[in-house]
Design a protein around this nucleic acid. Sequence first.
DNA 1: ACGGTTTTGGAATATTTATTCCATTTTATT
DNA 2: AATAAAATGGAATAAATATTCCAAAACCGT
Lengths: 291, 291
Amino acid sequence: MDDAAPALNTAPATVEEFRDRLALVSEGLPKRLRQCADHIAANADRIAVSTVAELAAGADVPPSALMRFCQIMGFSGFSEMQKLFREAYAPGWPDYSTRLKNLKDNGAGSPAALLAEFVEAGRLSLEALAKSVDEAALDAAVAVLARAETLHVVGLRRAFPVATYLTYVFEKMAVPAMLHDAVGRLDHRFALRPGDAMIAITFTPYSEETLQLAQDARERGLPVIGITDRLTSPLARHSDAVLTVPEVDFGAFRSLSATIALAISLAVAVGSARGGADDLRKPEEKALPAE
Amino acid sequence: MDDAAPALNTAPATVEEFRDRLALVSEGLPKRLRQCADHIAANADRIAVSTVAELAAGADVPPSALMRFCQIMGFSGFSEMQKLFREAYAPGWPDYSTRLKNLKDNGAGSPAALLAEFVEAGRLSLEALAKSVDEAALDAAVAVLARAETLHVVGLRRAFPVATYLTYVFEKMAVPAMLHDAVGRLDHRFALRPGDAMIAITFTPYSEETLQLAQDARERGLPVIGITDRLTSPLARHSDAVLTVPEVDFGAFRSLSATIALAISLAVAVGSARGGADDLRKPEEKALPAE
DNA sequence: ACGGTTTTGGAATATTTATTCCATTTTATT
DNA sequence: AATAAAATGGAATAAATATTCCAAAACCGT
């Protein structure tokens, strides 16, 4: 009775392995179990969000049959199988609070260790950005900015580097842009002219001045593109298109990698939409001599 | 007991409605509930595959708080809310690499494709940085900056965002720092006092002013930490420690992801070396209130 | 058609997960 | 500083869900 069950010592660890195992196993399966295999194969993506009962109903078998099927696939039960799919879908973010503690316990935060953490946080942020961009909003933003006259860029505190970077790239691409820093407490409110557009950037303790300026712009009828951290940001209210950046933070410190990536994409897209398509193709000759 | 809960008669029927409601509702929310709103907004896609307990842990609130949040959103409870997301669930953005491909498939030059490129460039830069960082130089830089009095930061053009970011983080950590922008063509050369130190940042078409200021500092006996792109950079000549950042570029455009990561690491390391070790342990209370 | 073997369905149980409730704490108001 | 109102955390409870088990049914070779 030991080797009776055919070859199922180890559970699949990835979705690929799962599919392999499924193909392998479903050869000589009795009727009900084959129904399970077929339905699962056809609806693998719903495993993560279904209950045993639902899946069983779908395969038109009683729950216990599906249960047996899971075990034949090498899992201890349905829950374990489901876990695979739930995790595969959203690769769990490491939790930084414990990581931070470890780091602290070990090397008292040697600079190199710290750098490793920020590099990792940056990488995750970039990946998350790729996964979560709202393409429609991005397209809309580019369209708006491409047809505006001068572009007003505002962002203070943590967002200031992003604002300066945007302005820098616009300048290199010969797009008229104006940076609203707050030097000398001068707000250049009256520089906002009909036909212009604004890019406003602000993060968590949202800066009052930025919000204010965005609102001003809105009231003067300028379209406003918001770059912020959450859809629930107050900036969203004043914006015609909102781009959110899921920046993962390490301790109390939040990186900017993803935000910068989004900013340069936006700028280059706008620049090439305005300047004609070949701005991108041969940029080394036209637009941006590196620094 | 009928009108106790404020204004929440009808439950969102689509994800769109859900987002609207979320934005609407999260205005005047007390602390814990706001944490829920934020975490949910940032991780809406994981609702379908998570339990109350998991989501609550992610938002760093007890399950009952999240439960209340669901009701404020107009649902009878978590299960009803989850149902919405399970039905809408399509394992849409599976993993990073296929998502990138999808973005690129929008056609070369489209904003989404551009973003994919910059995300990729950023990631590569970060990886390269992690591999190539000169730990000795980093340690030396931190040591020097930790024992200096005020820190002078200079970086113009493409390096300017980095300089402003550094200054921002220093300020948040209560490290005296001075940003040498070039506003009004004022060079604050005479602010360089014995006992101070300088961080100078410049990349390929090295900016004359930055080099000049670094040289000034050197001549006055201040230690200079250089952040640049190659070891053969002219900045290296004026620096006591040189940190190089291998930023990969896309077309004529070079990202800043790695440079930013290096900058924040440097700043945090310096900040905690100066301020006592626990700057890192409880940063949320001391140093940096998020933005 | 008979005994042995495999497969099946569903009822019983165990486990996990959601939800409610209320005693404490916090916050706002006077 | 005193009071009322709102918010919070956690323990208790309810509900849903997974899992096991076994008697009945189907199957198979003789």
